[in-house]
Design a protein around this nucleic acid. Structure first.
Length: 624
DNA sequence: ACGATCACG
DNA sequence: ACGTACGTGATCGTG
């Protein structure tokens, strides 16, 4: 056994690295002695994607406030019998210890489920995620003045201001070994002292963090919310475990097409002296040299040349159609098109190909509790952000087999319905209950029964603007309508929906004179930024809508329908089902997700079902 | 590491 | 009285 020492919060802690069968026996005795006390668990592996081909679990660590055990289980670097024995010990402890803790538990649970024979469903009821507790206490990242959700920032706040950043420390160790962050996790020797020390410290910090956060969560009344989030996280982990099937041949061809397009546009731009279309400074210089005038500026004061600025110069409208207002600037045109092609090739088609497993499925990481508003996020790859105006990219995602199809169920105008329910605005509630198209209804009240589509869209923009707390100028820019028209529409909107205006104003007033936070119907507390109190309405609405979907996921699981669900996308669930039962499955999902009387306000949350063909893209081809 | 950009709801 | 559109993830270039 190798023993390492360190100081955490002024106390000496011990890290024991198991090296023999006798060590493993001692480890198991130690674990049994912990009784019902929480034991933190963590895993180290070759990489982040537990489903990729070369992934290996390297060690499993266990720890309490003062002690950690590092159990090597890698199939490389140690004798095979030690690897098997280590895994056996870790598995026995994981199978029976009554109180386990992990930071970002879904990651480790999925690793253990796939690579250590530890069943996700059996493990989860005994596993607490400190990242969930931390998010409930303060969901803000360091950039917004919060501690963030990473172990380092949380440990610095709650455990020891000098707690080492073990990830940073390891990258430094990688460098001295001639390794990078890419290669280091897989290649650093299993017995490297920095590796084992930091692996041990992670569980000690997690155990201590848990002690602090568990008390805080109980004291602030978040216990039930924490249980809810644990259930949501399990459901999301199961969705991730199943993954989504992709079409490698199609995606390979698509990527090649997009890359050759990007190259063509890059060559055009090069003819105007722009070496890289992704360098805004180069684009600015070239455009100014051509005699164009640029007025919009970025946050840091540089001239702005984003799509919004470039499209008019290229004589293109928002749908990429020629306006006919001027001679198109061919450089602006090449930059917009080239950037789009490159991004689609690399971030979407390429990422889907890179992340697929041996069965041509991708298992994107689902952070079930991510944004300040608790919204979920999906990464590696970012499947919530695939282009939706065109079907090309989404065509690369397939139903499970050739006898299955894609479908989706989404909530109809869920954020508008949520604000109606929360504010209790009688006019909006009545319109919703009557099954009216809300924006059309508003347009009719403001402009009369002969309102135009433009007027309806303006009122839709105003409604969204209310939700975001935006001003008339921004709204005018977004909708393309003149400012005075927007002002008029906003005033009329306020008069029609007095309850909404009152509700928003009250949230801000309460934040001004009371605590700078809002509390959602689920009891979630969202901190507000001092200078952006107006965001209160948006936070509470966005967060409540998120909880609606999260709760729906639990009901979908209870109804036995989770196996069909492929992804949550903010206000919708997309699914794959055998073609002959897809309508039945879709209807069951739509009914399970629907809410007849939201929060007892009489507001129904209705759902829309769509059934497509073999790919996700098929759901977008008809609309286009 | 950070700003700018662009994709989504 | 004044002025603010909300939330994400990924990539690229620059310093």
């Amino acid at each position: 056994m190798r023993v390492q020492h360190h100081r955490i919060a002024g106390e000496q802690v011990v890290i024991r690295v198991a090296e023999s069968r006798a060590d493993l026996d001692e480890f198991e005795r130690w674990a049994a002695e912990q009784g019902r006390r929480p034991v933190a668990v963590d895993t180290e592996a070759t990489g982040l994607n537990a489903f990729s081909a070369g992934f290996r679990l390297r060690m499993v660590q266990f720890g309490t406030a003062r002690e950690a055990w590092v159990i090597p289980v890698d199939t490389q670097g140690i004798p095979p019998e030690m690897s098997t024995a280590g895994l056996g010990s870790a598995r026995r402890v994981l199978a029976c210890h009554p109180a386990l803790v992990a930071h970002n538990a879904p990651f480790d649970a999925l690793v253990l489920d796939r690579h250590a024979g530890v069943d996700l469903d059996a493990l989860w009821p005994r596993l607490t995620d400190t990242a969930i507790l931390a998010h409930l206490c303060d969901p803000r990242g360091p950039e917004d003045g919060g501690p963030g959700l990473k172990l380092k920032g949380l440990a610095a706040l709650h455990v020891d201001p000098d707690a080492p950043d073990t990830a940073d420390g390891l990258t430094a160790a990688f460098r001295t070994l001639g390794l990078t962050t890419e290669t280091g996790w897989a290649q650093i020797p299993l017995d490297h002292p920095t590796y084992t020390l930091y692996a041990g410290l992670d569980v000690i910090l997690t155990a201590r963090l848990h002690t602090v956060l568990a008390d805080l969560v109980a004291a602030r009344g978040f216990t039930r919310l924490a249980e809810f989030e644990a259930a949501v996280a399990l459901v999301c982990a199961k969705i991730q475990r199943r993954g989504v099937r992709v079409d490698p041949e199609y995606l390979t061809a698509l990527r090649a097409d997009l890359l050759s397009d990007a190259e063509r546009w890059t060559d055009v731009a090069a003819g105007y002296g722009v070496r890289s279309i992704n360098a805004p400074a180069q684009v600015v210089n070239a455009l100014l040299g051509m005699g164009e005038t640029l007025t919009e500026i970025t946050k840091s004061g540089a001239l702005k040349v984003d799509k919004e600025v470039l499209a008019p110069l290229a004589d293109l409208d928002r749908e990429w159609e020629r306006i006919g207002a001027r001679e198109p600037n061919l450089l602006a045109d090449a930059v917009i098109r080239g950037k789009r092609s490159a991004k689609w090739a690399v971030s979407y088609a390429g990422a889907m190909l890179d992340y697929r497993d041996a069965d041509d499925r991708i298992h994107p990481s689902i952070a079930s509790l991510r944004a300040r508003t608790a919204r979920m996020s999906i990464s590696r790859p970012a499947l919530q952000q695939l282009p939706s105006k065109e079907a090309r990219v989404r065509r690369g995602m397939l139903a499970d087999d050739d006898a299955s199809v894609w479908g989706s169920v989404d909530y109809q105008a869920v954020e508008m319905r949520v604000i109606a329910a929360l504010s209790g605005d009688p006019v909006m509630i009545e319109a919703i209950r009557a099954g009216r198209d809300l924006h059309g209804y508003t347009a009719e009240l403001v402009y009369g029964p002969d309102y135009t589509l433009r007027q309806r869209n303006l009122m839709k923009g105003v409604g969204l603007g209310k939700l975001f707390g935006g001003g008339a100028d921004t709204l005018a820019r977004q909708t393309g309508a003149p400012v005075d028209q927007v002002r008029h529409a906003t005033r009329r909107y306020d008069r029609v929906y007095r309850g909404i205006t009152r509700y928003s104003a009250r949230l801000v007033r309460r934040a001004e004179y009371g605590r700078r936070e809002v509390t959602t119907p689920t009891g979630r507390v969202i901190p507000l930024d001092r200078n952006r109190l107006y965001a209160a309405t948006n936070y509470i609405v966005q967060s409540t809508a998120r909880d609606v979907l999260a709760d729906a996921l639990l009901r979908v699981d209870d109804a036995g329908l989770l196996d069909y669900v492929r992804l949550p996308v903010h206000d919708e669930l997309v699914f794959s089902a055998p073609a002959d039962t897809a309508h039945e499955v879709g209807r069951a999902l739509a009914e399970t997700m629907a809410v007849t009387d939201f929060l007892g306000t009489g507001v129904p949350l209705t759902t829309d079902l769509e059934i497509g063909g073999r790919s996700w893209g098929s759901l977008y081809e008809l609309a286009a």
